[in-house]
């Protein structure tokens, strides 16, 4: 597939997944409305909306705190800032995102913020100390692609959706378990409702994770297109894969943000034994991401990574 086709295919799949989220939410709320009272279902939906909006508004500062990203003056990281400017221009972003530094030896990066104008890119000091310019640019382009594709927005939404669904399903489950008001219907209805409430959060989780994996492929393709250099992105991923340090601030709640998953390295390694576990990864296996780039760009990565000087060392940033 060409990059354009990949981007289109990924967009379509993302739309389907978001649609699935809305459907799931309506289903759970509908189930509550059916088993108990219609108005209760409506109240649940309204409550979900309020909680969702609050979570969305708070998300930007929350992410910065959870990942330990520090604001830095643009002049202090001028060369890095320039790279971000360049990839933003290549992406056609109206505003260059701010750069924040995460003091962490593991090479990784993420993008956050609901709107492109208010977004920032978090970069670990480890990334600056490992990546040569060409590959660092690819990683930054990957993050800028997330911002341009509104992934940061979509993934925050997905997180909120998943949280809300889990919350409502939990309430529904408890209400039945502790014998709430039952509007008739037989035992069968109750059992169906119980199973529904039990499974809904897992369905939401799977949806969220599959969405996250889609967006990673999409951002890889976008970065390759922006720089006109799919090999740079593939090289960067290979370098991330070979590096074995992991992010200190790794948490399940923010794992989906990073360019390389900080938590599921172990999972992807045992995927041969337990193939199902890959369903619970936030990121596709790096190997699959590299092959997608190789297919699109028609090249094969050399076994040996280039020995160029890391960008952060070259420009004395770390």
């Amino acid at each position: 597939m060409t990059l354009q086709q990949q981007i289109r295919a990924n967009r379509l799949k993302s739309t389907i997944v978001v649609f699935g989220f809305v459907l799931l939410l309506l289903l759970v709320a509908g189930l509550i409305g059916f088993v108990f009272d219609l108005s209760l279902g409506v109240v649940a939906l309204a409550g979900a909306a309020v909680y969702g909006i609050f979570a969305l508004v708070r998300s930007r500062s929350m992410v910065a705190r959870l990942t330990g990203a520090q604001e830095v003056a643009p002049d202090a990281v001028r060369p890095l800032r320039r790279l971000v400017e360049n990839v933003s221009i290549a992406a056609g972003l109206p505003v260059t995102p701010e750069v924040r530094i995460v003091d962490d030896a593991a090479p990784n990066a993420y993008a956050a913020g609901l709107r492109p104008e208010k977004s920032y890119i978090g970069v670990t000091t480890g990334l600056l100390a490992t990546m040569p310019q060409r590959e660092l640019e690819a990683v930054l382009a990957h993050e800028v692609a997330h911002i341009r594709n509104r992934d940061t927005y979509l993934m925050t939404m997905a997180l909120v959706f998943a949280g809300v669904i889990a919350l409502i399903a939990d309430i529904g489950f408890r209400s039945i378990a502790y014998g709430g008001r039952n509007r008739g219907g037989g035992v069968l209805v109750l059992v169906v409702a119980l199973v529904g409430f039990l499974l809904a959060p897992y369905a939401a989780l799977l949806l969220r994770l599959s969405l996250s994996r889609r967006r990673e492929f999409l951002a890889d393709a976008g970065a390759a297109e922006m720089l006109n250099d799919p090999e740079a992105m593939a090289l960067a991923l290979r370098r991330l894969e070979r590096d074995s340090t992991t992010v200190k601030y790794a948490e399940a709640s923010t794992a989906h943000l990073w360019v390389e998953s900080p938590t599921d390295r172990v999972d992807s390694q045992r995927s041969g034994v337990l193939a199902l576990s890959s369903l619970f990864n936030t990121h596709p296996a790096i190997g699959a991401r590299i092959s997608a780039l190789e297919d699109a760009g028609g090249f094969g990565l050399p076994e040996q990574l280039p020995f160029d000087e890391p960008f952060g060392i070259e420009h004395q940033l770390v």
Binding site: R82, N86, V87, I89, A90, A91
Partner: peptide, 12 residues
């Protein structure tokens, strides 16, 4: 820097 930015803007 400007040359880099011209080439980035050109790609877009």
């Amino acid at each position: 820097d400007t040359e880099d930015k011209i080439s980035a803007a050109r790609r877009y």
